[in-house]
Simulated scan of single mutants.
Amino acid sequence: MMSAIVTRRDNTMLALKDGLYWGMGHTVMLVFVGSVIIISRVTIFSSDIIEVFIGGMLVLFGTARLFKREEPINFKTRHGLPFVVGLIHGLAGSGALVLLVMSQIDDVLLGITYMVIFGIGSIIGMCASTGLLSIPFTPRMRISRVIRSVATVISAVLCISYGAYMVYQHI
């Protein structure tokens, strides 16, 4: 999903900021939902609906990227979309695993500390991945329009394929 956003950036610093906002959204949702789980002692959590939603988003982002390969993002500093993606992503995948662990921790402070540390690691990892992913799309690395176009198509097709697989697995 983030690859469809980041590959439209022509500046690695903006892609790193996308990763920062993605990680922050992920962490905010984890800490919020995890705190509710710790405080209320709710132990039932099913991420199937969220996984289907994220799979659908992957298909939509990949399809949009496939048909708008040459269009750069027309805004320079707006990072709301990566933050929203992070919020949704915080409930699926690794977020679901963290929340499962959270349901087993009795100490509220220990549980919240665990989530914050996990969130900081997520932010660092998401910044690193978006930064690295953006390098082939920076002006200095644009050796060939053909290579850029092929990389974009591959990224979009992988995004669509994985999204469709997620939907299929969780329906």
Rank of each mutant, 00 (worst) to 15 (best):
L14Q: 09
I105N: 14
V36Y: 11
E70H: 08
S40R: 09
K17P: 01
V31S: 03
I124C: 05
S35P: 03
H89R: 01
Y21L: 08
G56H: 10
I49H: 07
S35L: 04
I154G: 11
I123H: 06
L30K: 01
S155Q: 00
H26A: 03
P72K: 09
L16G: 10
R8A: 00
T12Q: 09
I120F: 04
S40P: 02
C159Q: 08
V6W: 00
T113M: 12
M29L: 09
I147K: 05
I38V: 08
S103G: 15
T27Q: 07
F67P: 02
N74I: 07
T77C: 05
T113D: 08
D10H: 05
M1I: 10
A128M: 12
V116L: 06
K76E: 11
I160Q: 06
M2H: 10
G163C: 11
V101R: 11
L66V: 02
S134C: 11
Y114M: 12
I123E: 07
S161F: 07
T130K: 14
M13I: 12
V6F: 02
N74M: 08
T27S: 15
A156I: 05
D107N: 14
V28G: 02
G93N: 11
D107S: 14
G19K: 09
Q169R: 13
F67G: 03
D10F: 03
I38G: 14
G62V: 11
I120P: 01
G19C: 11
M141V: 07
I54V: 15
A164G: 08
V84P: 01
S46Y: 09
M2A: 08
H26Q: 05
M141Q: 07
L132N: 02
V33C: 00
G111Q: 11
S35G: 14
S122L: 05
V167E: 07
F45H: 10
C127T: 06
I160D: 00
I38K: 03
R145Y: 09
V85Q: 01
F137W: 02
Q104T: 14
P82F: 13
E51K: 15
I154T: 14
V146M: 07
I37D: 13
M2F: 10
R78C: 14
I117C: 10
S35K: 03
L97S: 15
